[in-house]
Amino acid sequence: MKGKRVIVLLACVLLASTALFANGAPEVYPSKDIEFIVSSGAGGGTDAISRKISQLAEKELGSAIYFVNKPGADDAVGPNLLMGAKNDGYTIGNLNYGSIINAPFTGLIKGYDLAKVQIFALITQEPDALMVGKNSPYKTFDALIAAAKANPGKIKVADQGIGSRVNLLALKIQDLYGVKFNMISYQGSAPQREAILNGEVDAAITSLGDFAPLLNSGDAIGVIEFSSVRNGGYPTVPTSKELGLDESLLSGSFLTLAAPAGTPADIIEKLVKAFGSAATSKEFADWTKTVGVTPDFKSGAELKAFVDGKISGETKALQALKDAGVL
């Protein structure tokens, strides 16, 4: 009996204290910690960039940002959660290539709709590149295409799974040059690196940053980067623009930040300002060089044009491949 009374008392005390906490209405945003939903697992590139940029933005916001990692389903699980979150500015998250292009296209998650989020900033871009081993005979893009033409289906190219961004890029190259690769799927960039190291494949497509350890040690060579400006970390790798390749081959991942749709405009403005100054800071620029990504801050109309352009261009390419029965 005695025990029961104690429990009741305890519950009362707890309830009273929660009521107290709830009453203190926030006046200025942000008055409490902000949750950041990361669309990939702890320890990956997306996770690292999200944490770094938030760490810098925290100072200006004056409120701590904490992380919830929600990997899975083409980077769509995290954004899907964000879509259902309260739009009070205390939940933000990141969207990248998979969440903006693949997820709406494949429709893996019911009710997944980009209209439910408000993308407010582009932070980084990470162009894709093509790498070969140090003893490879194909040290230029032309040599590789010529070899693929001569031996259809013999040149082995490592990608990251059917329907992935880099797979799409390889398919575009095939289509444009009328060649046929033997595309080998690996899960992520680490097995791609190993495949280049042990000579299992002839070439690999992913970002230069993913191959950083091998590029630095000279075990792998960057043949081409599918971008318009040379990579700050690897300035010797030629870009596709320099080599006069078609613009549709410009490809790469990117990282944008978003809040649930309907988040008050003044809060969005504060977030854009804080993350903007973080993304353009020297500290961030120096840090991105070490991981091989390019800081590229965009917001407002400029950002909208970027995202819309990506969606229409890539979705069209995906649809074309689907119609052709490749995907």
Binding site: G72, A73, D74, T106, L108, G161, I162, Y186, Q187
Partner: peptide, 10 residues
Amino acid sequence: IGMDPLKSVS
């Protein structure tokens, strides 16, 4: 259960 490791299907 979940995403296929090598293809965009669940």
